[in-house]
Simulated assay, not measured.
Amino acid sequence: MKLKRGKKQRKSGAQNRGNVDAQSQKDALYHQEKFVKKIQKQKFHENKEKELARQPHCLVIHRGDVGKYVKGLESDLRNLVEPNTAKNLKILKRNNIKDFIVNGAVLGVTNMMVLTSSDASLQLRMMRFSQGPTLSFKVKQYSLARHVVNCQKRPVATDKLFKSSPLVVMNGFGDGSKKHLSLVQTFIQNMFPSINVDTIQLGNLKRCLIVSYDEETDEIQMRH
């Protein structure tokens, strides 16, 4: 009986050691998988930051004394170029355009839109850092987003709309004989990140920017 008990004890001891070894292997595999997932997550965030840094970034500011409606237009233009913009950028009177150009280049800013108002008209300048070009437009008419929303029966306005860049649609710029139109088309397209048709998720496309050129009136209309 003692010998049998000894055999059982030796068997149970070997079985316990086997269970401990199996548990140790499971723990090692668990920690290894956890470490691999951590490395993959870090690489994913690094690649995402690099991709974000390569995308165009735009600042929207105003110069001089402007009214509340022009400031409202400035806010709407910032919403237009979101998320690659400084939505809550504060402009001081002592700041000049050179300050934004120098500091913006360090922060990776590639474009800037400047609104200036006078007694005669409202001007919009679109700049490309750091060697241009600069496009100048005279704003004839504009409607603020809040006015459009007030006219809608079922307005849709959520923060999710501005988490991705809009889809840019250009219309009427196909005349190759007018080089300035080709320049405007290329300039506006390069203000927004390019879209990869193979990898884009349609659910992320929440907004659309339509830029149309009217040859009869020689005017450009932007709808967002």
Rank of each mutant, 00 (worst) to 15 (best):
A86L: 12
D99W: 01
A120R: 08
N150W: 11
T110Y: 02
P193F: 10
L124F: 03
K71V: 03
A120D: 05
T158M: 11
R146Q: 10
Q42R: 11
N204G: 11
V156F: 10
N88W: 06
T134V: 12
I97A: 10
M127P: 06
K71W: 04
H62L: 09
Y69N: 14
L115Y: 00
A145T: 07
I188E: 01
N111D: 05
S121Y: 05
L52K: 14
R128F: 13
D119P: 00
L144R: 02
A145R: 09
F44N: 12
S143H: 10
N96L: 10
I61M: 11
N103W: 06
M1R: 06
K4L: 13
G108H: 06
Q9R: 13
K2Q: 07
V139Y: 04
T110N: 09
G172T: 08
N196W: 05
Q9E: 15
M191R: 10
K41Q: 06
L124V: 05
T110W: 00
V70Y: 00
Y69M: 13
S75R: 07
P166K: 05
V81R: 02
F137Y: 12
H57C: 03
M112D: 06
E33F: 01
F137A: 01
K206N: 15
N95P: 02
I188H: 03
Q9N: 15
E49Y: 09
F173W: 06
V169E: 00
Y142C: 03
T158G: 14
K71G: 07
V114R: 06
E82P: 00
N95V: 11
A105P: 01
Q23A: 09
L92S: 12
G67E: 02
A28Q: 09
V36I: 04
L205P: 04
E82K: 13
K8W: 02
H57M: 03
N47P: 00
G13C: 07
D65Y: 04
S194I: 01
E215R: 13
R78E: 08
T217I: 10
L73G: 12
I61L: 14
R94L: 13
K38D: 06
H180G: 02
K50D: 05
M191N: 04
L181Q: 14
Q123E: 11
L209M: 14
L181D: 03
Q221V: 13
V148R: 08
N204P: 11
Y30Q: 11
P56V: 03
K163C: 03
K8G: 05
K37D: 04
G174Q: 02
I210S: 14
Q123G: 00
D175H: 15
H147C: 08
L52S: 15
R54H: 15
S136Y: 07
M113D: 05
I188M: 14
D175G: 11
K90M: 05
V197C: 13
N16D: 05
S136V: 14
L183W: 08
Q55P: 01
S117P: 04
I195P: 02
Y69D: 14
V149N: 09
G132M: 07
V168Y: 08
K48Q: 14
L107S: 15
N88Y: 11
A53G: 06
M112V: 11
L181T: 06
F137M: 07
G174R: 07
V211R: 01
H147P: 03
P56C: 02
N96W: 02
D159S: 12
F187M: 15
D214E: 09
L73H: 11
V81F: 02
L144I: 06
P193R: 03
A14H: 04
K48W: 10
E51H: 08
R94H: 08
R125Y: 15
D21Y: 06
